[in-house]
């Protein structure tokens, strides 16, 4: 029972980060019409930036700033590439996936060659350690709490932006009907760039939460997370934000449970097998997709 509760908390913390990642990924699908496979790589690279600044200056504010601005800059820099691809005649969304695959490969390889000599990075203990509450054997760590609380706040803010502000209305309009949005004079390019900005902001925030929760990162983390995020968003239905919320949380909990009851290397397989089975049964996703 105690293992169960501990893993449930862990799973919710992990799942809430997946939720944020899927949300950013889906935003790119909906507004920019791209499959941004490298999005999690950008997050991991931002974690590296955070770690580097923390190592050099030992200043938390600077580290957070570096993390978020790295993420925003990376996302904004990728915008012209993807805009060019989506504007090409006769080229579909697959091309954006292939290009982002290329970007992801480059980032992974640079991290595994040059950053920290290719070794995984570990955040200083002052950044991650400390348990906040303890009930018997169950311990809630600072990282878990930050991850959960941070994700809830971020998701609420994101949905507020999307459903309650003018900018969010433009996002939804473009996502739903690009032609009609253009017709009524919404500046598609400008709005789309803004969506990269939001995705970048969110990505930087995820990077901070992830480093608090995991306390470390490796060059292959991005690849691995990218795989999960693509899988989750397909299980939920590509571009389905609410589906992403549910499935992201489920993935986190499933993984944590598997970790609690199975040996390390098998625990990751469990969630992939489950997702694979769901996808094979429902290729269009559980909650339906808005992308044809």
């Amino acid at each position: 029972m105690e293992v169960f509760l501990a893993q449930l908390i862990n799973g919710l913390a992990l799942g809430s980060i997946y939720v944020l990642l899927v949300t950013g990924f889906n935003l790119m699908i909906l507004v920019a019409r791209i499959i941004q496979f490298a999005y999690p790589q950008f997050v991991v690279l931002s974690m590296y930036a955070c770690w580097e600044v923390l190592r050099l200056t030992n200043n938390v504010f600077l580290a957070v700033f570096a993390c978020i601005s790295t993420s925003i800059v990376l996302n904004i820099l990728s915008e012209p590439i993807f805009r060019r691809i989506t504007n090409m005649k006769g080229i579909d969304i697959n091309a954006s996936f292939v290009a982002s695959l290329g970007i992801a490969i480059v980032i992974t390889d640079i991290m595994s060659h040059s950053l920290n000599y290719g070794f995984p990075i570990a955040f200083p203990t002052s950044w991650v350690e400390g348990s906040l509450a303890r009930f018997g054997l169950i311990m809630i760590s600072k990282g878990q709490l930050y991850a959960l609380a941070g994700s809830i706040i971020a998701v609420l803010l994101f949905f507020y932006l999307l459903y309650r502000t003018k900018q969010g209305r433009l996002f939804r309009a473009i996502a739903e009907n690009r032609f009609a949005a253009r017709l009524i004079g919404i500046p598609i390019v400008k709005t789309s760039i803004f969506s990269y900005f939001i995705a970048g902001l969110l990505g930087g925030f995820i990077a901070i939460l992830l480093s608090l929760l995991l306390g470390s990162a490796s060059p292959w983390l991005g690849e691995f997370v990218a795989l999960k995020i693509l899988a989750v968003s397909i299980v939920a239905g590509l571009g389905n934000l609410r589906g992403g919320l549910v499935c992201g949380l489920c993935l986190g909990v499933t993984e944590a449970m598997a970790m609690g009851y199975l040996s390390g290397s098998w625990s990751n397989v469990v969630s992939f097998v489950i997702m694979l089975i769901i996808i094979l049964i429902k290729p269009q996703g559980l909650f339906g997709t808005s992308i044809s």
């Binding site: 969304i93 269009q284 997709t289």
Partner: peptide, 22 residues
Amino acid sequence: IGKAPCFTVVIVGLAFIFIVKT
């Protein structure tokens, strides 16, 4: 997945590779 959309096929492949490798 005979007529599944492209990205479903992509993720089935990637997940399958991962499972087989593990």
